[in-house]
């Protein structure tokens, strides 16, 4: 350890205590994970509703959802973040002021979760729609024939049965969520990438900090990849033959 420090003196900058910047980096990482979790969760909720709307909704709802998913997937996240971050904050405040309330400051965390959640929702809609379509029709028909109401049908049959099909797509979405948190650095939210840039800027040890942050992101990616693999195996525990056949 000592020898390593002597060979690369800039490693000392990564110490957790204040002369080092390691604490800031870890705090940024925690912020990033929080936003990613919130956005992913919000995206799942929007995605589930969106998928059901696209499959079983009326023609108007279906067209509106098509517009939502198309626009969100065509416009860069960075532009969407700016539009939603500034415009929505502004609109909320204008509405509050016109109704005689005081202005509110939307916290960076909430705004980040909301914006990335809307983006994730569009992708999740497509992933979950595909997964629901992959559930064998016979199972759904059997449940209907047993007289299950729609909500129970979704809870007991469709959602558990589609989870295995949806898992690879959802794992991908989670990775996108963790990496998209970096975009919030541009609107000045103190997540990992911005903390890294500040640390690197004030110490001039650019490589040390950017590589350290890269290692943190990579660890997050690899750990969640392993975790999602386990969840997928668990979600597919019922359909052994099909799971085999699909590789």
């Amino acid at each position: 350890m000592e020898a390593l420090l002597e060979a690369f003196p800039s490693l000392g900058l990564l110490a957790l205590e204040p002369p080092g910047w390691g604490g800031n980096l870890l705090r940024g990482l925690v912020n990033s994970i929080q936003i990613a979790l919130g956005a992913f969760g919000l995206g799942l909720v929007i995605g589930t509703l969106g998928a059901y709307g696209k499959l079983y909704g009326g023609p108007v709802l279906r067209d509106l959802l098509a517009i939502y998913t198309t626009v969100v997937r065509a416009v860069p996240e960075l532009v969407l973040i700016l539009i939603l971050y500034y415009a929505v904050t502004d609109l909320v405040n204008q509405a509050l002021v016109s109704f005689g309330y005081a202005r509110v400051q939307v916290s960076g965390l909430m705004a980040g979760i909301a914006v990335l959640g809307v983006v994730q929702g569009a992708y999740a809609t497509e992933v979950l729609r595909g997964a629901i379509l992959a559930v064998p029709v016979g199972q759904v028909e059997a449940a209907r024939a047993m007289g299950m109401p729609p909500v129970m049908l979704a809870r007991r049959i469709t959602l558990p049965a589609m989870l295995g099909f949806a898992m690879p797509g959802l794992a991908n979405l989670w990775l996108i969520a963790t990496k998209d948190t970096a975009l919030l650095a541009i609107v000045g939210f103190g997540e990992l990438t911005l903390e890294t840039r500040q640390a690197a800027g004030s110490t001039k040890a650019y490589f040390t900090f950017f590589l350290a942050a890269g290692a943190l992101y990579l660890t997050l990616t690899l750990v969640s990849g392993w975790l999602f693999g386990r969840i997928e195996r668990w979600a597919r525990r019922g359909d052994r033959e099909m799971g085999r056949a699909r590789g």
Partner: peptide, 23 residues
């Protein structure tokens, strides 16, 4: 491929620009 896909593009961009740019 794993490293590129596992880290944000913004970080890679800043690593190259600020890192190499200062080197």
């Amino acid at each position: 491929c794993t490293v590129i896909r596992g880290t944000p593009l913004l970080l890679q961009l800043w690593l190259l620009y600020y890192g190499l740019g200062s080197l």
